[in-house]
Design a protein around this nucleic acid. Sequence first.
DNA 1: TTAATAGTGTCTCTGAGACACTATGTG
DNA 2: CACATAGTGTCTCAGAGACACTATTAA
Lengths: 244, 244
Amino acid sequence: MSPADDERAFLATYDPTAFERPSVSVDVVILTADDDALHALLVRRDALPQRGRWALPGGFVRASESLEEAALRVLNDKGGLRDVYLEQLYTFGRPDRDPRMRVLSVAYVALVAHARLPPLAEGRALCTLHVPWSGEAGGPVMVLGEGGRPLPLAFDHGEMLAMAVKRLRGKLDYTPIGYQLLPPHFSLRDLQTVHETILGRALNKDSFRRRMLASGELEATGEREQAVGHRPAELYRFVHRSAL
Amino acid sequence: MSPADDERAFLATYDPTAFERPSVSVDVVILTADDDALHALLVRRDALPQRGRWALPGGFVRASESLEEAALRVLNDKGGLRDVYLEQLYTFGRPDRDPRMRVLSVAYVALVAHARLPPLAEGRALCTLHVPWSGEAGGPVMVLGEGGRPLPLAFDHGEMLAMAVKRLRGKLDYTPIGYQLLPPHFSLRDLQTVHETILGRALNKDSFRRRMLASGELEATGEREQAVGHRPAELYRFVHRSAL
DNA sequence: TTAATAGTGTCTCTGAGACACTATGTG
DNA sequence: CACATAGTGTCTCAGAGACACTATTAA
């Protein structure tokens, strides 16, 4: 019998139920920047468990789809979002993280320009993130709702939000990823504000300009800001570096 | 009925089989540096599927254990290793990545000093990694066995190895994580060699020394190298920074 | 004209690379 | 002694911060 026949014969008799299997979901941290603050799209749970608490949009992974496809589906179904930056974050697997049963959750981060967010359906909200630590130290984050009150988060979704911010801060050191949170054309000031919002600290204007322009990833569009009460800034777009 | 009662009543009637569930495994990239090269501990599969190919040590996640506990169990059972650096890497979930059934795999990276590796059991090997790309560009890696011949890898384990190297290279820019691959006391030359091995390029000696000593994470032990044919280097140990 | 921000030119400071020089072990 | 590598002192260069100065728009 050839090795290929071996494989076929084996697979025909294999029992896939021999090991206990957990449920697997994806949860997506959908981040936006506006008004000098980071916001995340959260969904109020109206089903048990954890009814009334706020959760990241998520869903169970279907048998035929990859993890990333599941995350894209969640983005589309729960946020009405397509073609956004999406990156796998971390997989959470504490046995007791969901009281119903064993559920692993693969967390993703998505970045969306504020203007691209469709109107929010009932039970959804853009909640403001408060990050009380600097750099990539990590730690808990607080999420404020409409009235500025802290919102109770479901499951370990607070951890996921915190890790998303941490990851983003790390990436910003070597990637101008902030443009994912801006419209296609933006001023350098806009970009700096986004970076400052993510990092939670002020940046040096001159140095920021120099770094961004030297990166070769920005291209002047020739357009300028409209109707601002001062000298309008030139608008730039992002271009992907040809080779490094 | 109180919210807490609601939760209890709900959980009592919840059907955990309502969604299809994949199997979940952990695979651990156990890395070591020796002879100016990175090595990974691989296991030759003698069961189907993919019999004869080389795989990362791994195992299915049990119902009662967290992902990290599963990875620690794999380290102990398949590598005889305890108290090593361990970090979650990425979760691989292509629906067809295992021909038996849907298996998600949460990959971990472990770093082990070469001297701490116990003798290898039958069917295990320390295989040399060849990384044909520089920086964090990413790309495929080649794994060489005893005779220097490329080994066929099982499933998507080549991707896991490549991502482990990529992650490690990224971390090295801001963490002297290389000490995890060295004995407790080591010379600066040893540390530099490890960093060069991981990065795949030569580093400036003076600058490396300055950076390491300035980081505040190294402490001179007062000991020196023994029986080298030249001036012996001072040995250092790592200390965890108190505050940043 | 004034207010406000965009954008530039330049000085300084710091960290990395380069390199020469000294120190200290073995044979 | 020669030799090899550890470790230091110092020059140069590049990038970041600081800051003053010019440019350009709306009101």
